[in-house]
């Protein structure tokens, strides 16, 4: 088996060409750190936006003068709908009481009111996965068609923004991740290509002695994966520094940062991603050998 020799040969080359290899490792480490920070941002935004639909509600205003029985029928009808998570009935008296509570600093606004102008209403919370612009429109139309319903109010823009925000962040993150991954591949590609050309005479001798493509390629692939691996390990160190800087230093000044979640499982994947991208870069660099 020539594999031990390939490892020995790759290690020898890593040491002999140390400066170009160190430079590549640092570049790969920086790139993987950007990947980590992007994933971290994406993860936290996903967490934040996943909580937004929980706050979304629709208000169904009932016509004035409908009976208690009719109101109960509407409530029962809504309770049975699959898209509705929970409902809360607000009578016109409760609504006025809440309004007065809200306006307690300016009670003169409500002075002179002879009768309660507010309508009874039902507050609906939708299930998380139904909070999309199109779903909310459909549900709104359905509610308006129910006998006894006067009008439906909901934050149309909120539903749309939640979706738009999520989609934009996802798209931008994917573009960043792919660009950086392509960058890592390019760095290992360039390094391995340079090393390959530097060893061109040596490789010619290998070929004349009967070496196969695999024998010649393996040390370069090992070297590329080593660059990716060490880049990954260095980026773990960078990510940990970032994590501790946020958790212990910056959060003292900006308390909201305390809510950020940093999944440490991400870090374990970094050397593996580094090795994978390093191998891809090396394979492209060496290509097909003409024997």
């Amino acid at each position: 088996m020539a594999f031990p020799y390939s490892i020995k040969s790759a290690v020898r080359s890593l040491i002999k060409e140390k400066w170009i290899n160190i430079l590549s490792i640092l570049t790969v480490a920086s790139s993987l750190l950007i990947i980590t920070l992007t994933s971290f941002t994406l993860y936290n935004l996903e967490l934040a936006t996943s909580r937004l639909p929980e706050r979304f509600s629709m208000i169904v205003y009932l016509k004035t003068g409908i009976s208690k029985e009719e109101t109960q029928t509407i409530i029962n009808n809504l309770k049975n709908r699959p898209e509705i998570d929970n409902i809360k009935y607000i009578s016109k008296e409760t609504a006025l009481k809440e309004l007065k509570q809200k306006l307690k600093d300016a009670p003169y606004i409500l002075e002179g009111l002879d009768e309660n102008p507010l309508a009874s209403s039902i507050e609906l919370k939708l299930k998380k996965n139904f909070v999309t612009e199109s779903n909310v429109n459909i549900i709104s139309k359905m509610l308006k068609n129910i006998h006894g319903v006067d009008d439906v109010y909901y934050g149309e823009k909120i539903a749309e923004t939640i979706h738009l925000l999520k989609r934009s962040v996802e798209n931008i993150s994917i573009i960043i991740l792919l660009s950086i991954a392509a960058g890592v591949v390019f760095v290992t590609y360039s390094t391995v290509k340079i090393l390959f050309y530097r060893k061109k005479d040596e490789i010619e001798i290998f070929k004349l002695l009967g070496a196969t493509g695999g024998f010649i390629r393996t040390p370069f692939i090992i070297e590329g994966s080593a660059i990716g691996f060490f880049g990954g390990v260095l980026s773990i160190i960078g990510a940990l520094i970032f994590y501790f800087a946020i958790t212990y230093r910056l959060s003292a000044v900006i308390p909201i940062l305390k809510n950020l979640v940093f999944p440490l499982e991400f870090l374990i994947a970094l050397p593996v991603i580094g090795i994978f991208l390093g191998i891809v870069g090396s394979l492209i660099a060496i290509g097909r050998l003409r024997l």
């Binding site: 040596e202 010619e204 001798i205 070929k207 004349l208 002695l209 009967g210 070496a211 196969t212 024997l291």
Partner: peptide
């Protein structure tokens, strides 16, 4: 081709040592 070359021992004019 590598199999053929392995069945041959070549001594080159310029030695071709590494």
């Amino acid at each position: 081709v590598p199999l053929l070359r392995r069945s041959i021992g070549a001594v080159f004019q310029d030695f071709k040592l590494i």
